[in-house]
């Protein structure tokens, strides 16, 4: 067990912290993640990051989506995931662009476009993490109401942004249908 954060500022930049209410939750979380082959470690977070106990798990932030999904599957209790550097809030702004007979929703670096008449997903663009090309193939050509949510099969922050765009598309489609 390590009780300090990485001293190198550049090396901490892609790190995220999972914070917990109780020490035992942090220990269980570390065990679950290590068993699933995630490279994580127990750390003592700086005071500004403490919300519950004084123990946290340091993760590769880009894997936030899959870490949270694993916690949900294994019943691990945690308070939140936060980046070690920066504002700490995921982008929640979406932008909608209307094309002729199609709508594109942009969330962060991800864009998803669907057919206004059928609700079929026509295209996915943007992103840079390796699950995006895979998720694109699983989404394109399927109806919004029948396609799997990107957060179910994705692993990365790009997949998280794609999920935001997907949810917004689904809401727009349902509103129009009703």
């Amino acid at each position: 067990m390590e009780f300090t954060l990485s001293g190198d500022a550049a090396l901490t930049k892609d790190r995220g912290l999972v914070v917990f209410k109780k020490v035992e939750d942090a220990i269980i979380a570390e065990k679950v993640l290590k068993e699933a082959n995630y490279q994580v470690r127990l750390v003592a977070p700086p005071p500004t990051f403490r919300m519950g106990c004084d123990l946290a798990v340091e993760i590769n932030l880009v894997e936030q989506l899959s870490v949270e999904r694993l916690f949900s599957e294994k019943g691990v209790n945690y308070l939140k995931v936060t980046p070690l550097k920066g504002g700490g809030e995921l982008l929640d702004i979406v932008k909608v662009t209307n094309f002729k007979e199609a709508t594109m929703v942009k969330a962060g670096n991800m864009k998803l476009t669907f057919d206004d008449t059928t609700g079929i997903i026509l295209n996915v663009s943007g992103g840079g993490c390796p699950d995006i090309p895979y998720l694109s193939v699983s989404l394109i050509g399927r109806k919004l109401t029948e396609a799997p949510r990107p957060r179910e099969n994705g692993f990365t922050l790009c997949a998280m942004m794609l999920d935001r765009a997907f949810v917004e598309c689904l809401e727009l489609w349902r509103k129009r249908a009703s």
Binding site: K13, D14, R15, L61, V62, P83, K85, G86, G87, G88, E89, L90, L91, I93, K106, G108, N109, G126, G128, L157, C158, M160, M161
Partner: peptide
């Protein structure tokens, strides 16, 4: 969007760029 990420001194991924 990625240009905004490059201009953000702290973000390690475009999902966490300053709004």
């Amino acid at each position: 969007c990625e240009m905004g990420f490059l201009a953000d001194p702290d973000a390690s991924h475009p999902a966490y760029i300053n709004k």
